[in-house]
Design a binder for these strands. Structure first.
Length: 267
DNA sequence: ATCTTTACCTGACTGC
DNA sequence: TGCAGTCAGGTAAAGA
């Protein structure tokens, strides 16, 4: 499940591979991957454009071209890597873009939830995404985590409030902070708000250093697995003893997501 | 404003 | 071996 650390790892892995590349033609085996964009039009616009840079915004991958951005969202099972084959290196590749010298940027996605789009401006992303958690000043967390009665986990998953956090790292950060995922945001103490901000940042930064979490589908662009999953305290640990108190990790549903927490440590 | 439901998708897993 | 049922969850849209 690619979240901020996984997407950041993909971007960092691809960056050196895309240096000095020029876009050629795109290939598609499932038109919907272009999110309504017509392939002919797509190719007309993208062909011959230099790849000028790649960065992450929230869970979106933004590849800067001369006049456009190629924007990729991995959703659940998306993978993005460089291949020497137009149809990539696995059976779930639905899009590829020639980037020169028999090299292709391949987008693989078993679930077909992910999308590849082309845009002249990234403004539309800014309109639907909250601030990046890394970095976000300490005072900003206090402001962000106020004025709403929504449950804290639902709030953290809302990309318009905070960009990049998903189900895994929301559970991990709430456990480290000792906060029940169902607690209304406006009932957190100032200390809890500050601590939650710090813990989200620490956990995301550590996960980037571990190069993301391979639960099932996520792979780094070089095909290898991340290590972050080895450091989880609650995600996927249902029925196992809590590392803090020894009582059992419980799974409940919060905000329509499976939620893992310790009823003893989190209140 | 907030919450709930549904849709999008298919591989992996469970139980019979 | 196969087959039905269930689960995984990021985002968008619709309805309460």
């Amino acid at each position: 499940m690619p979240e901020l650390p996984e997407v950041e790892t993909v971007v960092r892995g691809l960056r050196p591979r895309l240096k000095d590349c020029v876009a050629g033609l795109a290939w598609v085996d499932w038109p919907k991957v272009l999110d309504g964009y017509n392939l002919t039009q797509f190719n007309k616009e993208v062909k011959g454009q230099a790849l000028k840079g790649i960065h992450r915004r929230g869970k979106y991958i933004c590849l800067a071209l001369d006049t456009h951005y190629l924007v990729v969202h991995l959703r659940m099972t998306g993978r993005l890597y460089v291949s020497s084959n137009k149809t990539g290196d696995d059976k779930w590749v639905h899009f590829s873009l020639a980037i020169g010298d028999q090299q292709f940027l391949a987008f693989s996605d078993a679930r077909k939830f992910g999308r590849v789009t082309l845009t002249r401006s990234l403004d539309y992303l800014e309109e639907k995404l909250g601030p990046e958690p890394l970095p976000l000043p300490r005072e900003a967390w206090l402001t962000l985590l106020s004025g709403t009665s929504r449950g804290i986990k639902a709030f953290l998953l809302d990309q318009k409030k905070l960009a990049g956090v998903g189900n895994i790292y929301a559970d991990e950060a709430l456990h480290r902070t000792g906060v029940d995922p169902r607690r209304p945001v406006n009932e957190l103490t100032p200390q809890e708000r500050t601590n939650l901000g710090i813990n989200i940042q620490d956990i995301l930064a550590a996960a980037i250093n571990y190069e993301g979490a391979t639960i099932s589908w996520y792979r780094k662009p070089d095909g290898t697995q991340g290590e972050s999953q080895k450091h989880f305290k609650v995600y996927g640990k249902t029925g196992e003893p809590c590392s803090q108190c020894g009582n059992l990790i419980t799974r409940i549903t919060v905000a329509q997501r499976s939620t893992h927490f310790c009823p003893t440590c989190q209140s």
